[in-house]
Amino acid sequence: MSPATELMNCDEYREMISADPAFDGGAGHLSSCRACQAFRRDIQSLNLKIAKAMQISVPELELPELPEVETENVVPIAARKPFSKPAWFALAATVVLAASVGVRMFGVGVDYDSLADEVLAHLDHEPAALRVSSTPVTDTRLTKVVPADVAQLDHSAGLITYARSCEINGKTVPHLVIQGEHGPVTILLMPDEAVAEAVSLDGENVHGVILPIGAGSIAIMGAREEKLERIEKSVLNSVKWST
């Protein structure tokens, strides 16, 4: 198969999009070929169904009997993996940037409570995001809200029914909504908000988490009864920062 190129023909484009429904090359061909636009929609729709079909139920975890192991030479966990150089740079950049806008800091990251509070408070400002819906946002809308130079997003996380650019901690971030089993699930992609570990979100009617991903983080929030673990994994698998 040929790599992504703007000079693709129909066969080449269809091979690529059916091999990877998140493929975003071939824009030149796609914009002028309605048949391939329809093919792409079909493949992406099929992919969502494949993902659902593969989500078989899982029996409760039962650990086998675990034998004793020799631990004399085991390196303590804390000493296992120091921060890599890029992680230090990202962290340092975050600290400098946050300090420059007056964000209260402690330790090695941003003030988690403030970020959590701001994320939770943000939900109150956008009631439209909390509507139950089965209508996906258009690709054009999604591309506008999640530009390719910010993040690569495939459709495996779920049906995206809301997409808007919002402001969190003084930065414009994509605000997306997918539909969970108990209503809308809010996702905030925050490529510039580094958190050292997962931060729980506990609102009046919602719960969720801010998860570290690369040099940024993603907030995921749903109704109290919504089980977010599966959604968290799908979201983490479907988002890649571009920077």
């Binding site: 059916s18 091999a19 990877d20 494949i50």
Partner: peptide
């Protein structure tokens, strides 16, 4: 689809070149 692997990662796990992975997925 289920594990969120890229085609490169699939190739590494299955011992395949990326082209072969793309062909199989297609």
């Amino acid at each position: 689809v289920l594990m969120g692997y890229s085609t490169t990662e699939i190739g590494e796990l299955m011992g395949l070149k990326q082209g072969a992975v793309l062909t199989r997925l297609h």
